[in-house]
Each structure stands twice: as C-alpha cells, then as structure tokens.
C-alpha cells in the first residue's frame, strides 16, 4: 500500500504536510519523530479517524486497525478480555469462542485469561490483548501507535518480540510509530522520520541509522541515550 500526498489541516495549522510513504506488503515501517511531528495524526488519518486530503491506496479503509499507547484506556474496563477480543469478529456466535482462543494463543497469552478483566492483567498482557483484538478484524494494515511507551522495560521486550513474530508468521503489514529510535530500529524494515509535519527521511532501517541523510535524523540519533556496553 502507499500513502500519497497526505495532508491533514486543523484550521490554519498543518499537522501533516504532503506525506508520501510506501508500506510494502508484509513489511514493518517504523515512523519516528518528536511530539508534535504529526506522526500520530498521520496514523489517525490512515485509520480514518481524522479527515485528510491526498490518498491512501492499496488498502481498504475498513481493513486498517490501530493499537493505542495505553492499553488500560483502550480496553473497556467493564468488558472481559474475551468479550473485548470478540468485539471485532464477524463470525457466527458458535465460532467466536474458538477464534478468541486462537487469537489469544497467537499473541502468546494463556486462553484462561479470556474471563479476566483488564485491571487484573499486567501492562504487557493488556497490550497483547489489544493486539489480539485488532488482529481479530483480519487487518490488511496494523498501525501501532507508541504501543510500548506506557510499558515497563521488562515487558516491552515481549511485545516487541510479538510484533516481529507476527510479521514472520502471518505476514502482517505494519506502521509502527514510536518516539524511541532504538525500538523503531529493532522492529522495522523501513524507518521513516517525521519533523514538523513533513517526512524528512525514509529508507531501510540500518541505512537510516548508520548513514542518516538528513540533518534532523542525525540530531535525533545523537540524542539517543546509550548504555556503555563492553
């Protein structure tokens, strides 16, 4: 699929300015940028949550699903895990139970969690439930908006591993948005950098990280805190 000349304006403010970005089939495209760079607005436009000009080609708007930053607010506190996951399924009632179990297994959660409520789960488990729910709609494109930012480091790894295994196992195309360059680099095939609503650089992950072409990308890379490893 390809996003062509997409622009989002709020009044006189241009949040996303003429962005063109290709998401190859089965690839994970990482989108980095700082707050206010327009990366989340781009995601919401592609998901059909905000109006835009331009075009999103190669994907039916109804087949885009999004996973949000905070799983505690993106899961209805009064619905069980099973009911939440079943929400997007367009299946006869009898087949739902089995599909919910399949989806929970796909995101490496025990099937027994289906009867629990979100507050009883850890942050990482909740986020996996949100991913399972999105996968239930059989999306052609999954948008992950800062899905590890609200998680602790110790569970972040499990969610990132899941994202990579989903690409390998079911060939999921994904737009992975994060402000964390190290996380984006780890999961993505292509890295795109946004700054003040514009796309300043896009290319294969290792290339962008090793040899950034844009000055802004370089300043982002320089600012990443590093742990001196021997």
């Amino acid at each position: 699929m390809i996003i062509k000349n997409l622009t989002v304006r709020f009044g006189s403010f241009t949040a996303v300015d003429d962005v063109t970005l290709e998401i190859p089939d089965g690839a994970i495209v990482g989108l980095v940028g700082e707050s206010g760079s327009g990366k989340s607005t781009l995601a919401r436009a592609v998901s059909g949550l905000v109006p835009y000009t331009g075009a999103v080609e190669g994907v039916d708007p109804g087949r885009v699903q999004m996973v949000f930053q905070d799983p505690l607010t993106s899961l209805d506190p009064r619905m069980t895990v099973g009911a939440s996951v079943a929400e997007g399924l367009r299946l006869p009632r009898a087949a739902r139970q089995a599909e919910v179990e399949r989806l929970l297994t796909l995101v490496s959660l025990p099937v027994s969690l289906a009867g629990r409520y979100p507050r009883e789960l850890s942050g990482g488990q909740r986020q996996r439930v949100a991913i399972a729910r999105a996968l239930g709609a059989r999306p052609a494109l999954l948008i992950a908006d800062e899905i590890t930012s609200a998680l602790d480091v110790s569970v972040q790894g499990a969610v990132l591993n899941l994202i990579r295994s989903l690409r390998e196992e079911i060939g999921l195309s994904m737009l992975f948005i994060s402000h964390n360059l190290a996380v984006v680099r780890y999961v993505s095939d292509v890295v795109a950098v946004m700054h003040r609503g514009r796309l300043v650089e896009a290319g294969p992950a290792e290339e962008v990280v090793k040899a950034p072409a844009d000055a802004y990308t370089r300043s982002l890379l320089d600012a990443v805190p590093r742990l001196a490893r021997s």
């Binding site: 850890s122 110790s154 569970v155 499990a158 990132l160 190290a182 990280v209 590093r226 742990l227």
Partner: peptide, 22 residues
Amino acid sequence: LVASLPDMETDRSRPLASIPGR
C-alpha cells in the same frame, strides 16, 4: 533490565530478552 533494553546496536535477528510475570 539491561538485556531487555534495545539500543542502536542490538542484534535485530535475535529476540529481545524479557522478564516473565509482573
């Protein structure tokens, strides 16, 4: 904690470490 933190040199072909449970 140190192992589960991805940085700019993390090997992308290997899964990240994570801690089970909470």
